[in-house]
């Protein structure tokens, strides 16, 4: 299995995917940092409520972009993880060696996560760091423990999406898996937004929108991860929550039980991927 992990990491390095991603991330962070510099400067003399509201938006924006980019990286890295190798005929050379099929699936999964998780950590800490640096005295009190807790929850995002991509990759072509997972991801995202909107309205519409949100969260709980991570981050030491009340916010906190559901969901996805790869002709 270590060899498959090694090959997956080598692939990322040799194909220069990692360098390109890091370069583009650096460009994004530079623009984001410049925006934070000017944005926070303009807030220094504003009313406290205005400062809290706008700084919350700044942070939400960064975390949202992070979630989006990490999600898409997870999708693109995983949807071809098995299928592209099948399409290129690489498994003839690999599976004729003394290696089990489950080692290939698990090795690919771990290899992708070994790139995505450090990347997500770097990106997340950069966003937080830029906000704390430029927003010194403006940003509401962010607790270190919550930063770490939020980051830990955020790790579920690449872990989850990669597991779904892996499963789809054992069933479908790379293109098919990619299209399916992108649609699923957007369904989850739209469902999450509808649930947030449901928070501001009443009556039958509230019930319908919230139900759609819950259903999509069960099918693909990626949006839940982002909202839970945001929600933890915006909780101050006094227990107050400063989540932005908008589409990107996390006014409705996903329950802790949902995190268990996500953990179970990921295990099921990986087990199904192994099972499918074990029984299929290559």
């Amino acid at each position: 299995m270590r060899c498959i992990i090694r090959l997956t990491l080598l692939e990322m390095l040799k194909k220069k995917i990692l360098y390109l991603t890091l370069a583009l991330t650096a460009i994004f962070l530079i623009f984001y940092g410049i925006a934070m510099n000017y944005g926070y400067d303009s807030l220094r003399d504003a009313e406290p409520l205005m400062r809290i509201a706008v700084s919350g938006q700044f942070l939400s924006m960064g975390i949202y972009a992070l979630g989006f980019i990490v999600s898409f990286l997870s999708i693109f890295a995983s949807v071809g993880s098995i299928s592209s190798e099948i399409e290129q005929g690489n498994y003839d050379a690999i599976l004729s060696k003394p290696i089990s099929r489950y080692e290939v699936v698990v090795g690919r999964y771990i290899g992708i996560l070994l790139v995505l998780i450090p990347y997500a950590t770097f990106f997340y800490l950069s966003i937080i760091g830029l906000n704390l640096y430029f927003g010194d005295g403006v940003v509401a009190n962010i607790v270190t423990v919550n930063i770490l807790k939020s980051l830990s929850v955020l790790y579920l995002l690449p872990t989850l999406l990669t597991s779904v991509g892996l499963l789809l990759s054992t069933y479908l072509s790379t293109m098919g898996a990619g299209v399916t997972l992108v649609i699923l991801y957007f369904c989850g995202m739209v469902g999450g937004i509808l649930e947030q909107i449901g928070h501001f309205i009443t009556g039958e519409a509230k019930v319908v929108l919230t139900s759609i949100g819950i259903t999509t969260s069960l099918v693909i709980p990626s949006d839940i991860v982002y909202r839970k991570a945001s929600s933890i981050l915006y909780t101050t030491s006094s227990g107050m929550n400063f989540s932005a009340d908008n589409m990107l916010g996390a006014s409705i906190q996903p329950s802790g039980l949902m995190l268990f559901y996500i953990g179970f969901y990921i295990i099921i996805m990986v087990v199904l991927s192994i099972r499918k790869f074990q029984i299929r002709d290559l």
């Binding site: 080598l10 040799k14 290129q88 003839d92 050379a93 004729s96």
Partner: peptide
């Protein structure tokens, strides 16, 4: 040992 008909492997290696 096995040499497949169309030997394909990661060409970036």
């Amino acid at each position: 040992g096995y040499l497949p008909e169309l030997f394909q492997y990661h060409t970036w290696l």
